[in-house]
């Protein structure tokens, strides 16, 4: 079994062309980036606002509760009900993108909100008392301090999107999921398993890259990489790494 999968993965002809691995991989990465970008543009400002003002906490609870909706059902419902209203090839793409954005919002929102919420009230009070305007408090204190949790929410969202985009191949989205879905339909296990391995690798690499970026963008003062040599850690917001508050249902 394994040799045939290896053959499928390594044969040059499977890598080229519009149905080749190269193009499918590019599509998968492209859709994932697009979706996470849209979700982040919605969820980060919203999470910052809820955390900063303390108003609208129900939004966070509601999106958290919405995670109980099965991802497969959400994909199918959007494909069935939204797809027919969209002309051309976009009919296959738009419902998937909407579903993926909806799935990516909760972890980013929860992470951002939890991050701002966890900012030491004394630091916030001091920021105000030293003469920062509300906008400066948000940009210079709350956001940088919220970054570890915000970022782990983002990492959760990326994993969620990469995984669900694979399934979205069933409703016509391109990407690596095609190999899994088409392979299953054609009872071609080499293609199915080869695709599955590629998706796993993509998820691992994406998470690894985000972990590296985290080291650059998050201040060592709040990441927990530098801590007091003796006694307790006084600063809030430690590195949450993988499993964390922002974790979500997986697809």
């Amino acid at each position: 079994m394994i040799p045939t999968i290896w053959t499928w993965l390594t044969s040059a002809q499977n890598w080229v062309g519009s149905f080749g691995i190269g193009n499918r991989l590019a599509q998968h990465v492209g859709y994932s980036l697009l979706v996470v970008a849209i979700a982040a543009v919605i969820a980060i400002p919203l999470g910052l606002w809820v955390g900063h003002t303390g108003r609208g906490r129900w939004v966070v609870s509601a999106t958290n509760a919405a995670r109980a909706v099965p991802t497969l059902g959400l994909l199918f419902a959007l494909a069935l009900w939204v797809g027919p209203h969209i002309p051309g090839r976009a009919a296959f793409v738009v419902p998937s993108v909407i579903a993926l954005v909806l799935l990516a919002i909760p972890p980013i929102l929860a992470g951002t909100y939890a991050g701002v919420e966890a900012v030491d009230p004394a630091a916030r009070d001091a920021a105000k008392g030293l003469g920062m305007t509300p906008r400066q408090v948000l940009a210079r204190v709350e956001l940088p301090c919220a970054l570890p949790l915000l970022w782990s929410g983002l990492r959760s969202a990326v994993l969620q999107v990469i995984a669900t985009a694979t399934i979205a191949a069933y409703i016509g989205l391109g990407g690596l999921g095609r190999f899994l879905i088409d392979g299953l339909a054609q009872a071609d296990y080499a293609q199915t398993a080869g695709g599955a391995i590629l998706v796993c690798l993509l998820a691992l690499v994406a998470d690894g890259v985000l972990a590296l970026v985290q080291r650059v963008v998050v201040s060592p003062g709040v990441s927990g990489r530098r801590r007091r040599r003796r006694g307790i850690i006084l600063a809030p917001g430690k590195d949450m790494g993988h499993g964390n508050v922002a974790h979500t249902t997986r697809a």
């Binding site: 994993l159 694979t166 899994l180 695709g195 998706v199 790494g241």
Partner: peptide, 22 residues
């Protein structure tokens, strides 16, 4: 242990279902 479990959690479900027989 935490890193390993985190890595396992990154594996997409459909892919894991498909690779389990292997």
């Amino acid at each position: 242990l935490v890193t390993t479990s985190g890595l396992l959690y990154t594996v997409p479900s459909l892919a894991l279902f498909i690779l389990m027989p292997l």
